[in-house]
Write a protein that binds this DNA or RNA. Structure first.
Lengths: 160, 160
DNA sequence: CAGTATCCTCGCAGATACTG
DNA sequence: CAGTATCTGCGAGGATACTG
């Protein structure tokens, strides 16, 4: 991660990566989407050191994707809950998972993490939407063609 | 990144992250989707050191998301093109960008990167699909509820 | 233009120990 | 259970120089 070296990169992707472009952050989120919410459970399942987990949770809380709340049941333990913005990261996770399932299939299939509220059924995955809202297939989309790509990027994102 | 420390984590997300859970890899892909394909252009725009860029391109090529081809026009320069599996990473990028635009809006709005082949129009974004294929809104989905989350994760992903 | 080769450093992550 | 504190290494990444 080059969060250390400041990038004057005014790009949405960069900004998203600033928070979740991190190995542990994504895995914490993955577990959070499965409902895992406590420090201890995360630490044990991920095999992460306590100091790093603590720092990650702090960063993610400050970034507003997680919220630390006192557990009602217990009173002295805590829960890290997904905020609205954290919840909105769900498509990123599902997109990653879909890609992994297609191109790096694991022995045991992996179920998706969210359900549709109305039906209670697991969601299917994620899809790119056309301008009119139709879901598109991968082969229906293509990179912007033609020359001038380098200039376009520099204009859009900025020269370094 | 803890790709160094081996994780016996048989999870699609983990496997996807192994290739693209990296600051530079994602930015390279972002630029690739905009049509930026040469070593030099990438190096200049990203402000990355040549050695790191070289290593990233090698890794990504070996991982099969990029393909190194001789540029027809020139004959002695090269292009790094998205493969089919690289192209399939598009939803991940768009999901990231969408999140960034919503929660970390930049001064100048950012356009999306791909067009629909049929219409030539830029795509709208990405959406989660219900079991029957309907695109869902964020508030229509929820994490799997109830207790037992910790056990579920351990069962699904494995204990460390 | 497209890299490879070296050197160097600084910060991230793990390990361990301790606290309320 | 939920962390903080400290120490230590090692390796990713930048800078620079050189090559076909």
């Amino acid at each position: 991660m080059s969060r250390a070296t400041p990038h004057h990169d005014d790009c949405s992707v960069t900004k998203a990566l600033d928070i979740i472009g991190d190995w542990w952050a994504l895995l914490i989120l993955r577990n959070a989407f499965h409902g895992m919410r406590t420090f201890d459970a995360l630490q044990k399942q991920l095999g992460i050191s306590t100091s790093v987990l603590s720092s990650r949770l702090k960063t993610m809380t400050e970034a507003g994707v997680l919220q630390k709340v006192v557990s009602k049941a217990d009173g002295r333990s805590f829960e890290y809950r997904l905020t609205a913005s954290g919840h909105d990261l769900y498509p990123v996770l599902v997109a990653l998972m879909q890609w992994g399932e297609k191109w790096r299939p694991s022995a045991k299939g992996q179920r998706l993490m969210l359900i549709e509220k109305a039906s209670g059924l697991p969601v299917q995955g994620v899809a790119v939407l056309a301008a009119d809202g139709r879901p598109l297939k991968p082969w229906d989309v293509a990179p912007v063609p033609g020359p001038g790509a380098d200039e376009r990027v520099r204009e859009l994102i900025g020269p370094h």
